[in-house]
């Protein structure tokens, strides 16, 4: 089930959607699903369910650390489907973010079928460009799943046109060059990239730019259709001394961010 209706509803409310990333399996599979529920209760519209991977070349230290600990804790790819079921059951959009090899190993068609059956909306694929995604595009099409590919400040007009043409759900704008991680300033490059991307598509454009506060979420939410937050949320869990403490910190940050996107355009 596509996340398009979720984004449409946010648009009707005159605000950007809030999209929160957490990896499955940290601090445990159950613990990560509890954390995703906290996000949803705090006002997160779409949960980006991360697949921990041994070689996350697009991620900074915070998410790498969580992935290493999740894998050491014994998380398996099939736990993704449990998380997707829980998130969609709680009324939020369930998008899976994964590096490509785990899906390839599982079987692209089989992964798409199992994800759709679990109520997942689709995939965000940070190391799969549409040019290499033939198998995924046909599997996603036959199971009505979203295909979220990434664009970057370095993307040429030709690449923006080619990538957005293959997206469904939204376009993921990685609006600073570099790995994931909270940044003090979200800068002007993000707004420029969103506006360049919109020249090629009517799809919503959501922005991942290292947002970590409600004020930054408000700022990005003024021009983007969705604000994606990852490392700052994950850090609430990795830096907590107990899982419960982590959930409290996570809830507080998520509420601050949710308030941010809601006041962004008011």
């Amino acid at each position: 089930m596509s996340i398009a209706p979720v984004l449409a509803k946010c648009r009707e409310e005159g605000r950007a959607a809030l999209i929160g990333y957490l990896p499955v399996g940290f601090p445990s599979v159950e613990g990560s699903i509890a954390a995703m529920r906290v996000l949803i209760d705090a006002g997160v519209d779409i949960v980006e369910i991360g697949v921990p991977y041994s070689d996350p070349v697009m991620d900074g230290p915070v998410i790498q650390d969580a992935a290493v600990r999740a894998l050491a804790g014994g998380v398996h790819l099939s736990d993704i489907f449990t998380a997707a079921e829980a998130v969609s059951g709680a009324g939020a959009g369930a998008l899976v973010m994964t590096y490509w090899n785990p899906v390839l190993r599982y079987g692209v068609e089989r992964f798409a079928a199992d994800l759709a059956a679990a109520g997942g909306a689709g995939l965000i694929t940070p190391d799969l460009i549409p040019d290499e995604a033939g198998d995924w595009i046909s599997a996603a099409d036959s199971h009505d799943l979203d295909k979220v590919f990434l664009v970057a400040p370095s993307s040429t007009a030709e690449r923006l046109a080619a990538v957005t043409a293959q997206c469904r759900g939204f376009v993921y704008a990685t609006a600073v060059m570099g790995v994931t991680g909270a940044r003090a300033s979200v800068g002007e490059a993000a707004a420029a990239l969103v506006s360049r991307t919109r020249e090629h598509t009517d799809l919503p454009v959501c922005v991942g730019v290292g947002v970590s506060t409600g004020d930054q979420a408000a700022e990005v939410g003024r021009y983007a259709d969705g604000v994606i937050v990852g490392s700052a949320l994950v850090r609430c869990l990795t830096e907590a001394s107990t899982p419960d403490e982590g959930l409290v910190a996570l809830g507080a940050l998520a509420r601050d961010l949710a308030a941010g996107v809601r006041r962004g355009r008011s």
Binding site: F149, A152, V163
Partner: peptide
């Protein structure tokens, strides 16, 4: 243009690197 040796090769990298 995809740089395949038979089935092998390709470009499995973030979009940000494609222009480079």
């Amino acid at each position: 243009p995809r740089g395949r040796f038979g089935a092998f090769g390709g470009r499995y990298v973030p979009e940000a690197l494609i222009p480079a």
